[in-house]
Structures are given as C-alpha cells and as structure tokens.
Amino acid sequence: MHKFQKSALYRIASRSLRLPLALVIGGLALSGCRMGATDAATRGQEVFETCVPCHNSDGSGNAAVGAPNIAGMKAWYVEREVDKFRAGVRGMHFNDVEGMRMRPMVLSLASEEDVKAVAHYVETLPPVPHGSSFPGDPKAGAALYATCGACHGDTGAGNQDLGAPRIAGVDDWYLATELRKFRSGVRGTNPKDREGRLMRPMARTLANEDAIRNVVAYVETLKP
C-alpha cells in the first residue's frame, strides 16, 4: 500500500467523503427524472412554460412574433392542433413562417399526457381581450359571416361536433393571417388536415383583402 493511503488524512477523507459523494452522484442522476406524482393540472402549468416565451404567461399572445392569444381556448381544439403540429400536418409548408416556428416547440412536449395537460391548462386561463389592430367594415362583414356562421355559430362560439373552434374574442390580426393562409394554400392543403381542407374553400369565398378585413371586423364585434 502506498504511503499516502496509510496516512490519517487519507483515512479521514475516504470515510467522511463517502456519503456526500454518494449524495452528489445520486442527486445528479435523479435530476434528469420527472417526478411521477405531479397531478395533471400542475403538470399542465409546468408544460406551459414551454409556451410562455411566445404566448406569454397569461396566454395573451404576442403579435410581434405571430403568437396568437390562446387564453381560454377549448382544450379539444388546442389538443387537436398541437397533435397536427406534432404529426407535421401543420407547420410544414414552405411559407408558413409562424407554423414552422411553432412546430419544433410542440415537438419538445414529451408525451400525449403532456399535450392533454397543457391543453386543459390553456382552457383554464381567463380570456384576455385585445382591441382591433386594423380597420374594417363590420356591417359589410356581417353578410360575409353567414358562411362562417354555418360551422362557427352565429355568435362565433364554435362547434366541437363540426371541429370548428371558437373565433369570437380571437385577435383580428391572427384571424386575418390564417384566412390569408387558407386562401393561398399555406394551410388546408395537407391531405391529413381534415378540418383545414374543409376550411380552405370557405376562406376562398372571401374575394379579396377588403372582404377579409370586413369579416374579421365583424367577428371582433362578437362577444366570447
């Protein structure tokens, strides 16, 4: 045995460091593990941290980065769209700038349970109303809305049976952006996007930019 290993310092150090070393190594090993006892609501809030940088902690969104206001959105709709992003049904079009930004973020969600948990958490967030961001003629838009109302309802509350989300209370810039995407084929052309393919011909009934602005201006008058 080496002289150093016989020394008192070595004996003391080897005994007293055993427990701290074991704790440090064990702690490092467990730090990558998720706690299993977390309930769905808490888990939803935890997972939502992934969304906060763009959608804000209250879910109110950020127009500067194209992140819509999602506070209070129905869980079934959030879950469905997140699943579409995960499957590459959305966010894979060459010109879908915001969709391509969203897709990697949802791919970071670890499991279906996390998707459900975060969707339910989003539904619990109190709606955050925003004002209009561009002018439009709600009266002219009311006539155009008849097509939308067939699925989204007269009050814009949406219809789960038809797969149509609530649009009342949704930011006008987001509605207009998505309508343009549907019209141009950036959304609603993927064969697996059942609801999107239904939406696209409806959006194409809007003849021009004025029609989009007017119908969105009308939707902004609907109370969520």
Binding site: H93, N95, K181, G185, E209
Partner: peptide, 25 residues
C-alpha cells in the same frame, strides 16, 4: 407541389419570402 408552395411563382426569392409582415400586410 400544391401542399408545399403558393401557386404564384412570385413568392420565390428573397423579395417573395413570406415574411410575417407580408402575411399580415
């Protein structure tokens, strides 16, 4: 091709990139 691109060839190139500003107009 219809699932990948806008129908108009004017969308290609740097000038035609669908930036967020263009999409929102």
């Amino acid at each position: 091709a219809g699932q990948q691109a806008l129908p108009s060839p004017s969308t290609v190139g740097m000038d035609g990139l669908a930036t967020m500003a263009e999409v929102r107009r």
